[in-house]
Design a protein around this nucleic acid. Sequence first.
DNA 1: TAGCTGACGCCCT
DNA 2: CAGGGCGCCAGCT
Length: 111
Amino acid sequence: MTKNKDFFQLVCEVTQQIPPGRVTSYGAIARFLGSPQSSRMVGWALNATKSGMPYIPAHRVVNRNGMLTGKKHFGTSSAMAQLLQNEGVKIEENQIQNFKNIFWDPSLELI
DNA sequence: TAGCTGACGCCCT
DNA sequence: CAGGGCGCCAGCT
C-alpha cells in the first residue's frame, strides 16, 4: 500500500487517544512510531494539527521534563496549562506535577 | 536553489 | 553536577 500513514497522521491519532487527565511526551510518541530521535517531528506534526484539524489535545503532549514547552504555540501563554488543569492535571510554573504519575505511554496502553 | 529552523531527546565533555 | 553538541525529517523563506 502506497505508503503508511504520514508521521503527522499517526501523531494525530495517538494524541487523540490520550485519555483526559493524562499526558505523554514527544519522545514517547516518536518512539512509539519507531523514530525516537525524530521527537522534533512530533512537535512539527502537532503544530500542523492546530491548523485545520479536529480537536487535537496537543496540550496533553509535553516534553520529557513534563514542562509545557509548547504552550507558546497555543496562542495564549496559559491556554495549555489551563486546559491541563481543567482536566485535573496539576501545573506549576508551566511544569506538570506528578508528571510521571499521570504519564500515559502509547506503547503501553494504546498497544 | 539551497539553507535554516523547529512543541525534543540523548550522548559526550 | 552542569553545559554544549549532535541527530532526525519535513516544511518554510
